[in-house]
Nucleic acid binder design. Sequence first.
DNA 1: CTGTTAGCGCGTTCAA
DNA 2: TTGAACGCGCTAACAG
Lengths: 350, 350
Amino acid sequence: MPERPKTAPATLHDVAREAGVSLATASRSLNGSARKVNDDYRQRVHEAAARLDYSPNLSAQAVAKGASSTVALLVSNIADPYFSSIAAGVIRGAEAQGLIVTMAVTERSSARELQLVRTLRGQRPRVIILTGSRFEGPRSQDALVAELTAFTNTGGRVVLISQRELPFSAVVVDNYAGARRLANVLFEQGYRRFAAIGGDRGLMTSGDRLSGFADGLAEHGIAIHPDHITRGEFTRDGGFAAAQELLTKGIEAVQLVFAVSDVMAVGAMSALREGGRSAPDSIAVAGFDDIPMARDVTPALTTVNIPLEEVGMRAVELALSSTATTSDSVVTVGTRVIVRASTPLVRAGD
Amino acid sequence: MPERPKTAPATLHDVAREAGVSLATASRSLNGSARKVNDDYRQRVHEAAARLDYSPNLSAQAVAKGASSTVALLVSNIADPYFSSIAAGVIRGAEAQGLIVTMAVTERSSARELQLVRTLRGQRPRVIILTGSRFEGPRSQDALVAELTAFTNTGGRVVLISQRELPFSAVVVDNYAGARRLANVLFEQGYRRFAAIGGDRGLMTSGDRLSGFADGLAEHGIAIHPDHITRGEFTRDGGFAAAQELLTKGIEAVQLVFAVSDVMAVGAMSALREGGRSAPDSIAVAGFDDIPMARDVTPALTTVNIPLEEVGMRAVELALSSTATTSDSVVTVGTRVIVRASTPLVRAGD
DNA sequence: CTGTTAGCGCGTTCAA
DNA sequence: TTGAACGCGCTAACAG
């Protein structure tokens, strides 16, 4: 076992002394912007720093220059592939700017979300990115907006992912158009009788996808029977339960179930299979998001691709761009329908 | 669009002035330990803080008290369900202690890993948790150990996940025993002829699982033919490629393919299917980890469960426990074989 | 180009 | 109990 003397970390002061220069010179050689310092000194300072295992104290730097170098990211659940893909993009984008990401999990609770924003604000992050937030009532939403506004008022940037409703910059996905195109494609594949699984009422994302899908079908004179629309949590289990409910209500004639997210679609496929209606032979299934596992489930899932990592990267770019300084801007990322085995062509006689 | 006056954040000083008390009193009412302050004052300070949207500057607090309240987590790839599940546990465990998690991604490069440890050390985190690290040579490993040791020497805690090789505390999974039990179970199900897909050579995790599996089979007098063992990256695509290689080499007689991780197993199933050997009818597949999607692929994947979230939580507990202060300790978490549809019972006559 | 000095926001002694 | 003063590690004026 190695010794653990518990010494204090070396400070810049230690380095300066070790190198026989002033504190300022040490600071300039190690971090200061341009080469305003004699190469000789620079050399000696760096050697001293290495000898002492010096590592600059980021907190102290942040205090001294009044600006930290972190990005705070809030997600509902990092184990969900939707969020973890976005997080990967955020981390990559932040690192490109030399920023560190701190992450917190809201567990889909707006109370927790508010609490976390309060805490994270203490970090004085350059940016706070919110994704997957929900509002269980105008009151909690107001409190969140107030907290976020206090943050922007002091120079912080806020970026929302997939939400236009709040007065901040946002990276949004064109859910409506994507779902509409999906409906069109499925119609062309021969599908005529549909069921749908949505998220909880009041979730914009779910609503947009549902109405886009409905409108896409309407273009061809098709409507989804209200009994064939169920709702559930925006999770695998939510999709599972919703599909069970559909089976109970009876969907014998239905050819295809559209779930508003891939994780729900995956859950739905499992429930349908257990209920004796395996995809793709007995029923077709389509989702939305194109999470990585969509291509590995069986049958591979037809869905609408969102470039999730790109969404995350765009969020930090948007936050740091100069235009975002003066006004709220919205970046929209496009979607793409991906047809896979879960929605085979419908045979003519079917 | 709301106004963005860009004022500076309220400081403790502002709050004190607003409340008409001293800085010290304000500090004590807002953060100080026990109730050493008049309730009257406390009240006024809190009101003033609320009025000014005060949020304590965590960096300043960290500098003043010489200890930050963050946990730094390094993962290979946060979009990988294995790591994101562990991360969820780390975040939960950290939050239980009032700590914030900062996360960085190594992209499976030991050079990047070293670089990131250097950077994160600047945060003066209470803990650095490393998971999925790899060593492309003793040189890079030495450098990492040196950096980590410098960190522990100054009071920081280091916890490795799933690695015993370095002189630090660790949360490890009993990969060997789990794989061995899996082999036993599969034998009892009637399987006799196996192939295996491993990770890159030199990865302890992969090696342990492979040898545990081999030893479990050896108990029944079975060996895997060397040609029936391939290796690939520890990713979905690595598993896909490895399975393709197996198909090329010829595995007509093989009844079951064991992949050392679920993500590889999932990739392998896709490759096998494309190669005309769909699981479970034409060939069986088993994995390791029990990531959430294991139960949703078709056929559902037989695997060895690791309580991934618990692993993450244990890592921060271990780091913060008192025993970890004085010596390196290792916590082992158990595994459990989960039989699912990807490995049906072998019919007697097969 | 270098060194001295004054803060940054906060915790924590020390007297009062 | 409260307040004044100092120090945490560092950056950014300001002189030299």
